[in-house]
């Protein structure tokens, strides 16, 4: 019931449209709530998608970007399939999460966020996912002791995978990558520069 003084001006909507992947779709939401009703994790979201869209239009920049909501998306695509206005809701959720992370506004200990970072770091180094390293870094994500415990628990599965030739222990030393690693790094660097230039027009925090 707090009477705040949101201006309901469109500045944040314009920011989202310019910076968030598929953000130009936000204005097309008609608030029917089908996305929120279709989401299998719906009850666990702080703000369901349709509410996020309304908050964007209401100019609630900080509340939206620091929300854990869009990190809850599991990419099941139910919302996209059902949206009567054909909004790419899943993509917008990822776009919002990405934008919030880049601005440093995303919640600090969000597990999805942590995993996404590990995945990205793992992938962007050589252009290929190193599953062994990714798995290990997940084991040790929450400290050394926790990592050892998880590793011991999973040892039978690991041995089985090794015997079935589904896991190569030598991947721990560097591992395989794509053909032109330097080229890939250059592409990623350029993309980052373009995004940053766009985002610089808007406040950082």
């Amino acid at each position: 019931m707090s009477s705040n003084t949101i201006k309901y001006r469109n500045s944040f909507l314009r920011e989202v449209e310019a910076n968030v992947e598929e953000g130009e779709w936000v204005r097309m939401c008609m608030q029917c709530g089908v996305c929120s009703g279709s989401c299998p994790l719906g009850p666990h979201w702080e703000h369901p998608p349709q509410e996020l869209f309304m908050m964007i239009r209401a100019g609630k920049r900080e509340e939206v970007l620091s929300s854990s909501s869009m990190w809850m998306c599991t990419s099941c695509y139910n919302c996209i399939v059902r949206c009567p206005r054909e909004l790419p809701i899943t993509h917008i959720m990822h776009g919002l999460a990405h934008y919030a992370h880049k601005l440093g506004l995303a919640p600090k200990n969000q597990p999805t966020k942590k995993f996404a970072q590990l995945f990205w770091d793992n992938l962007s180094k050589k252009g290929r996912v190193n599953e062994l390293k990714l798995g290990l870094s997940l084991y040790f994500m929450n400290g050394f002791g926790e990592g050892i415990k998880t590793a011991l628990k999973m040892k039978d599965i690991g041995l089985g995978m090794y015997k079935a030739k589904r896991m190569n222990p030598f991947e721990i030393f560097g591992g395989h990558g794509c053909k032109d690693k330097k080229g890939l790094q250059a592409i990623l660097k350029k993309a980052r520069e373009i995004e940053d230039a766009k985002a610089d027009q808007y406040p950082k925090v």
């Binding site: 019931m1 705040n4 949101i6 309901y8 349709q50 309304m54």
Partner: peptide
Amino acid sequence: KDLILDEEVESE
């Protein structure tokens, strides 16, 4: 009253 966000608000 914003009926989606369920709050009393003001705008100019």
